[in-house]
């Protein structure tokens, strides 16, 4: 189903801190275009099973990211044989920008934590 989108323009900063779950979804999509179930699996895999999103939470996030223009739904699907109810999502440049900004923000925080000896300097994120 095609959906008209009103892309929200603006600086990445205007989105403010993302919730951890939202950030995870953006991270998952930073690698590849994925459908919903794949996003869940990716998040679960990357966090070693620590973050498990339910369908309700995931689609609440997807709706928000779509309306904020951080992700878009793909018009074409990779595999023609796929269940047509399945939809694929892609990070927009705006979304990438926001995810990067969030990662940098976290990085700054981590630096501070390291400078206060709360984290070992050798440890990588």
């Amino acid at each position: 189903m095609e959906k008209s989108l009103s892309a929200v323009q603006g600086n990445a900063e205007s989105f403010g801190p993302l919730t951890p779950a939202m950030f995870h979804v953006l991270l998952a999509l930073a690698g590849d275009d994925l459908h919903g179930y794949a996003i869940l699996k990716e998040v679960e895999l990357r966090t070693g099973g620590k973050v498990r999103l339910s369908t309700g939470t995931l689609y609440g996030i997807i709706k928000r990211l779509l309306s904020d223009g951080l992700i878009v739904e793909l018009r074409s699907r990779p595999a023609e044989t796929d269940d047509e109810r399945r939809r694929y999502y892609r990070l927009t440049p705006q979304g990438r920008h926001v995810a990067t900004a969030e990662a940098e923000r976290m990085d700054e925080i981590l630096s501070i934590a390291r400078s206060r000896n709360l984290l070992k300097k050798t440890r990588t994120a």
Binding site: G36, Y37, T55, K63, R87
Partner: peptide
Amino acid sequence: LLPFDFRSDFGPEMEIVFQEQ
């Protein structure tokens, strides 16, 4: 329990995701 619009937008997709889960 979800709003009608939400359901019509994402319902079918949520359903298959849930089935796979």
